[in-house]
């Protein structure tokens, strides 16, 4: 399903007038270091082609553990290239903050919160986004990461 979804969008952008960039990713964690590290790991693992933007939004405004709605909104703006943004969040307030922002239309148009494991989902989403998948296919790639069994 993921492959099919990706193949459907290999010509993404060719018929939409304004050329949209790849789908952007935003990683929202309680910890700034976790968000930045997972973003770095995803970039490393997704390397090999053009890598879609991935922005970290971790921790609170004062550098503590928690979620900053302003950091999330700013990261989404940076990640947005016009083709939509997929957000992955770790737990609790990270998830609730993104959902509250989405409910109030305070994230760029076409932003989706993926119901996905944070690290595995981030890698899958970045690979899909870098391959040119559309926003729904990128979110689906992240969500399918729940199915990657390790045993």
């Amino acid at each position: 399903m993921r492959r099919r979804a990706m193949s459907e969008v290999t010509d993404s952008g060719t018929d939409s007038g304004a050329a949209a960039g790849p789908v952007g990713l935003v990683l929202v964690s309680h910890s700034a270091r976790v968000a930045e590290s997972v973003a770095a790991l995803a970039r490393d693992l997704a390397a090999g082609g053009a890598v879609a933007p991935v922005e970290a939004a971790g921790g609170t405004d004062d550098g503590g553990v928690g979620t900053s709605s302003e950091r999330v909104a700013a990261a989404a703006l940076r990640a947005d290239g016009g083709a939509g943004v997929v957000v992955l969040a770790d737990l609790g307030s990270a998830v609730l903050t993104v959902r509250a922002l989405l409910a109030e239309d305070e994230l760029p148009e076409g932003t989706l919160l993926a119901d996905a494991p944070f690290l595995e989902g981030a890698v899958a989403a970045l690979v899909a986004a870098s391959a040119g998948a559309d926003v729904e296919a990128v979110a689906a790639a992240a969500e399918e990461a729940y199915g990657y069994r390790k045993l």
């Binding site: 553990v65 928690g66 979620t67 709605s69 302003e70 307030s93 959902r99 509250a100």
Partner: peptide
């Protein structure tokens, strides 16, 4: 509340009042 609280109570109470 949503923009100033870093925990889950921010979006929850923020949504309640908004």
């Amino acid at each position: 509340l949503i923009s100033s609280v870093g925990g889950a109570s921010g979006p929850l109470y923020g949504t309640l009042l908004r």
